[in-house]
């Protein structure tokens, strides 16, 4: 269950965002579409608990995010949420596999078999001992998906995962994300300005 109500946010009393209500049953995925500067990333950060909303409420899996302390939010995030960023980020001193191991260490979910199976599933198992800066763009994107799902989150948040890709790659990535989400039993919320993705989602919201 994912529910938001009257969510609003303003930066320094200057920029003011008001977001439509979201109401997702479990197993439902969502596409949030909006043009640049309309607060897409802000919404994603609110949903991930990286930002505190000024007004309104977010309820994720029975927890009211506004009522959690920052420490509880950290814990909630590591147990429930995986984020795929617009540009993939990694810990640069570590290999692909070590990045995933670090994520597992932070999430207290050590399991090397799972790492291997995810990497195999994403077709980058042979890169597992490479430093992340040696990966190609596509491999980086897949590795960042691996990082988002390695701790079996209940919700995957993806920020513009396809914005810089051509049609066929765009299709591949969104297929991959949906497949991973289904396979590992997670709900998927994709935030994008890319209208090509509309046809892949049953449910979408326009900002």
């Amino acid at each position: 269950m994912i529910k938001t109500k009257d969510l609003a946010f303003n930066y320094d009393n200057q920029v003011f965002f008001k977001f439509p209500n979201i109401n997702l049953k479990s197993n439902e995925d969502l596409l949030i579409i909006g043009s640049s500067g309309i607060g897409k990333t802000t919404l994603l950060h609110l949903l991930a608990g990286l930002l505190n909303s000024n007004s309104g409420s977010i309820e994720l899996f029975g927890k009211e995010l506004n009522q959690l302390s920052s420490h509880q939010l950290d814990r909630f995030r590591k147990n429930n949420i995986g984020i795929v960023f617009q540009r993939p980020h990694f810990v640069n001193s570590l290999t692909v596999k070590e990045n995933l191991q670090l994520a597992q260490y932070i999430g207290n979910k050590k399991n090397n078999n799972r790492i291997d199976s995810i990497l195999k599933n994403l077709n980058i198992l042979d890169k597992s001992n490479k430093k992340t800066n040696l990966l190609s763009q596509g491999e980086k994107q897949r590795a960042s998906i691996a990082l988002a799902i390695v701790n079996s989150p209940k919700l995957i948040l993806a920020d513009e995962p396809t914005s810089s890709l051509d049609d066929s790659n765009c299709f591949n990535v969104i297929k991959l994300l949906k497949k991973q989400a289904t396979e590992y039993g997670a709900q998927l919320i994709v935030i994008t300005h890319d209208s090509r993705l509309k046809k892949h989602f049953n449910k979408s919201i326009e900002l």
Partner: peptide, 12 residues
């Protein structure tokens, strides 16, 4: 960015 990433992974 990498610190922010580690935080979003749930590190305190």
């Amino acid at each position: 960015y990498e610190m922010a990433l580690i935080r979003t992974l749930g590190a305190s």
